[in-house]
Each structure stands twice: as structure tokens, then as C-alpha cells.
Design a protein around this nucleic acid. Structure first.
Lengths: 307, 307
DNA sequence: CGGCGGCGATACCCTTGCGGTATGGATCGG
DNA sequence: CCGATCCATACCGCAAGGGTATCGCCGCCG
């Protein structure tokens, strides 16, 4: 059997997402009949029924579900291949590091310093993206490495190296009834309104970024349980209380699997070397914190580290 | 910028592999001029030089290297998407498990038994492939799950679950000077001829499969250090001696990342459940071994398990 | 030094097949 | 029963992919 073109895959994905030939054709910037024909042709060539058309709508068969899912991955891979090749051909090469705001837990400065000492190092561009975009940017080949968070980000398709584990703190308004506690358990927060992050399920109000969330917490509209690195940018009127049984978050360095880029390899070396040198320190804080709302890390010691 | 078609990617990969337009065109079943043109066109569209043509051969630019590498992955992904969709559309669905001969270390029987009890289970087809083919079959979508060996197989692009760790044994002819030792270190085998497996570097004679290797060992042409599961099919004239500092091999169950197949999920459940139930037993041997060339597992206890 | 051979690029032509428009046919709602 | 909606079919034109012939360049060898 001969090749399936990306065009055909993209057509199918569009139809499978819209479940409507007309709308899909519109999205693809073409007329409906050629789209119908292309999909039929694809089905004939694969020898599989992908869609069930009952003259008043479209449904996916099981094979169609699979092709939608796998086809998206394949299209991602093609796009990433092109973009990485283009980036590799640019006259001044650079390494793009992507993370969400504060997503490095204070590690990036040290990593960059170590990296620049490597003979294979390239100039670095740090891209601060919006929450939920990190993994996608890396998948599409727009970035070379990313600082991601396990278990919140989807790490599949990447090679990774764990850099740092973080425990959780509850971010509360200073006026909250629990604000003077030295530590909490998740059960203490039962019934509180929690933020809902884009892409994740939940019933709280959706928040786009940490600043927005902080604002809402300060207004008493919600509380949040976050990796302890949030303490680096707490507002005056908020406090962070350790949550002893909260989610453990791992900051991981991720890059495209089976990458052969020497610049990426050097970056990974730098990052791993750095965290190994700092082994034992769970999280780095600026030396001069000065803020009373920063809970001393020793408070975590009341509970054994669950890892 | 508009889409890159798989056709164009395949053309480029062929040329990049052959480093010769004529041969690549032959391989693709087409004439050389359209191929030249297609590649030029691809370069123009990407805005990147991929090949350096000096009228007496072709070389890859750095961008070309990247596109060769990433393009192969992308083509794999497209092919896998198609094949998985086709498999999902077959009237009698089945689950294809792939492994190399003896690659399950005796686990598969139990896994299959546990799996068949699951309500989501499908009929299973066990595919025994040649050495080095396992990961590829899974990548191409010809199999649903594979039993692979870390660190020998390339696990990137798969989700995995570790099932079993195996220590190493040296397979020696009964007449070998070391054949009566109770245990060895790698240093004891310095200077011995070792097999070279397909795809891996090395300087020994290449072997295709274990049976061939066993034959060569019996003839005194080589010795081999293998995961201890080889003891399950040793010939009469061979012995297996624990190698205390040999490579630790992990049998992992692998499946396409981000898979949504319920049948695969059920298989993973069955396998993980099984190994958890047997937790503590490092490797399962048939109850009635009876072969004196099977070294008792207790011999391994002289060295602490390095994991 | 000149001819030859190998290799990629160019020129030109033909055919395929993709995409567009017009229309048909089925089904559901009122 | 009519109209609206939506996918399929019919048909057409043109862009683009593929083939053949040939050129230009370069290294090799007589």
C-alpha cells in the first residue's frame, strides 16, 4: 500500500474534530465536495471505515478514533521535523528554552551560567510561555528544551531528566483562618474553592496565570495548593503554609526524544551537573528573602519526605 | 508556510540516506530529475539548504542532518498512525504482543492468563520476532505491546512499565577453564571472544539469534554474557555462571505513548498485577528444572542486588 | 591535455489528480 | 409535504508531479 500524505491526514483530523464536512472544509479553506472525496479515498485506501455518515451528521468509528489520535501525533511530528530543520539552518544558531513563569524554581540562572561554560554551548533564548503551552511548544519544534512539571505536564514523547522535587504549600490570604498554622493537610482544605487550570478538569473558577490566581486568593475568592516555588513571588497579603500530604511536583528538563543536538546535550549536562552539585538542597531560595510570608523550609521536616 | 507532504519527506530521507540522487530515485521507483526538483523545491519552501551538491556527490548540511533524523521519526509516526487505524478497524480485533525468543523471561504465560480474565481483553497474538526488530515493530504500529530489554532496546517514544530485573550469567562450554567456578566478574572474561549483535557495534563475530550463538559457544568459538533468562534454554554441553558485576537487564513492557487503547491498558494492568503479586521473586524458573547446568539463583546472593 | 564518464540541473511535455461549481439524494423539522 | 441541512456525485479546468532528452560541471585517465 502506498503512502498517506499529510494533507490527507490533516483533512481527516479536521473532519474528525468538527464532525461536519462543511465546517471542516471551511476551516481548511476549501470546498466541501473535494473534502468528502478525499476522505472516501482515504478510507478506500486504508480499507477501513473511519466515519459513519448518517445524512444528518458524522460519527467516528473505532478506527476513526485511533486515526484521529495517532494522526495528530504524526502531524505534530512532521511539523516538528520541519521546524527543527529550519532552526538548525539559521545562520546564528541558538538554543530556545521554554518554561512557564517561575517554572524553573530558581534553577535556570545557575543552569545558564554552567551552560555558557560548555564549549558546545549556543546563545540561549529563554521563552516564558503561558501555562499549558510548554509541552506543545517543545512538540512543535519551536523550542529545544523545556522545564516541565511532573505530573502536571504530559511528558510523553520527550526524553527527560529530573532536576528537583518540590513539596506543596497552600497559598492563603493572611486573613484566612488557617493562615497562622505552621502546616496543613489536604483534609484541612476540604470545602475550599480551588482554581481550575486551563486544560484540566475541575469545578473552580478558571485561572490563566499565577498573577491572576494570586489576585483572586488575595480577594478571598479561593485558595490554592501549589509547588513551594510559588513562595518566590508571593504578594504581601498572602501566606504559604506547607501542606504535608500535598502533591509532590518534580521539575524535569525535557527535550525531543532521541535528539542528537549537541547543544541540547550540553544543556542537559549543565543542568544535571548543577543539581548534582546541589544534591540535598531540596529547593533554592534567594539568600535574602526577608519576607515573613516565606515559610522556612525546616517546617517541612515535621513530615518525612514521601519520595 | 504550508504543509510538507510525507512524499517530500520520504524523498528527502531517501536522498539523504543514499547521498546520491540517482540511486535514491531508483529506490523510490522514479526518475532522477523530478527527484532533484522536488528536493530543491523543499529547500526553497523551508528556506533552508539541506544538501551540498558538488557535482560529484552530495553532502548533508547541519539542517539536513536534523531533517533526516526528525523526518524518519515523523514518517514512522505517519505509518504507525495508518497501521493502527487499520488494525482497529479489523472485524475481529486482537492484541499483538511482540518479543524476541525467550524475551519474556518466563513471564508471558502468567501475563496471558491474568489478561484473559479481564473483561476488556481481546484475543492475543504473540509474535516472536528476530533480535533487534521488537522496537521497530511497535513503532510501525504492527504490534500493540512489546516486551523489551532495557538498556538494549531503544525505549524512546514508548510508555513503559518495568516488569523484572535480571542479572547476568556467562554462557560457557562445559570444557571452559572457568566452567566450574561458582561466580565470575567481567574481568575474568577479558580477552574472550564475545558475540556481536546486529545493530550494535563490536568486533566479535556477528550472531543473529541465540540458537546460533549457543552453537558457536558450544564449539568453543566464543563465550557470551547474557541475562540470566538464557538459562531456560541452555544446551546440555553449556553452563551458565553468574557474573556478579555484569549488566543488569530490565524486562519492560512497552506500548505506544499516550495510547488510549483499552485492550493495551488491560494488558498492562495484567502484567503489572502479576509482577506485583510475585514481588520479591527476581526471576521465575519452571518448577522442575532438573538441569544441572542451571545455576541455583541463590548463587547470586553472594553479591547484593545492585538495584 | 583532451576525451570520457558520472552526476546533478534544466527544459519541455504529458498525464494525473486535486479543487472548484453545480446538482442530486436522503433525512429531519415544522 | 415543503424546505432546510448535509453529504455524495458529476463534471471540468488547471496546477503540479513525473517522464525523456539534454546540458554543464568536474574529476579521472589515457
Amino acid at each position: 500500500m502506498d503512502r498517506v500524505e499529510t494533507r490527507e491526514l490533516a483533512y481527516f483530523v479536521a473532519v474528525a474534530e468538527e464532525l461536519h464536512f462543511g465546517r471542516a472544509a471551511g476551516r481548511l479553506g476549501m470546498a466541501q465536495p473535494p473534502l468528502s472525496r478525499a476522505i472516501r479515498q482515504l478510507e478506500r485506501r486504508l480499507g477501513v471505515e473511519l466515519l459513519i455518515r448518517n445524512s444528518r451528521g458524522v460519527r467516528l468509528t473505532e478506527a476513526g478514533e485511533v486515526l484521529l489520535h495517532e494522526g495528530r501525533k504524526a502531524l505534530d511530528a512532521v511539523e516538528a521535523a520541519v521546524r527543527r530543520a529550519q532552526r538548525a539552518g539559521e545562520p546564528e544558531r541558538k538554543l530556545v528554552v521554554v518554561m512557564k513563569p517561575n517554572g524553573d524554581a530558581g534553577l535556570l540562572g545557575g543552569i545558564l551560567q554552567a551552560y555558557q561554560g560548555d564549549p558546545e554551548a549556543l546563545p540561549v533564548e529563554v521563552e516564558i510561555c503561558r501555562i499549558g503551552e510548554q509541552a506543545g511548544l517543545l512538540r512543535e519544534g519551536r523550542a529545544d528544551v523545556a522545564l516541565l512539571h511532573d505530573p502536571y505536564d504530559d511528558l510523553s514523547g520527550f526524553d527527560t531528566e529530573e532536576l528537583l522535587t518540590q513539596r506543596s504549600v497552600a497559598v492563603l490570604p493572611r486573613t484566612h483562618g488557617l493562615a497562622r498554622r505552621r502546616s496543613l493537610h489536604m483534609a484541612d482544605l476540604a470545602g475550599e474553592t480551588m482554581p481550575r487550570w486551563p486544560g484540566l478538569p475541575g469545578d473552580g473558577p478558571e485561572v490563566r496565570d499565577t498573577a491572576q490566581m494570586m489576585q483572586l486568593i488575595a480577594l478571598g475568592r479561593m485558595v490554592a495548593v501549589m509547588p513551594e516555588a510559588v513562595r518566590r513571588n508571593l504578594r504581601e497579603e498572602l501566606v504559604a503554609i506547607p501542606v504535608l500530604d500535598g502533591q509532590i511536583t518534580t521539575v524535569v528538563l525535557a527535550w525531543p526524544e532521541r535528539s542528537r543536538s549537541r547543544a541540547v546535550a550540553a544543556f542537559v549536562r549543565a543542568a544535571v551537573g548543577l543539581v548534582q552539585a546541589e544534591e540535598g538542597t531540596t529547593i533554592a531560595f534567594p539568600a535574602a528573602v526577608g519576607h515573613e510570608n516565606l515559610v522556612p523550609a525546616s517546617d517541612f521536616e515535621v513530615a518525612p519526605h514521601p519520595l
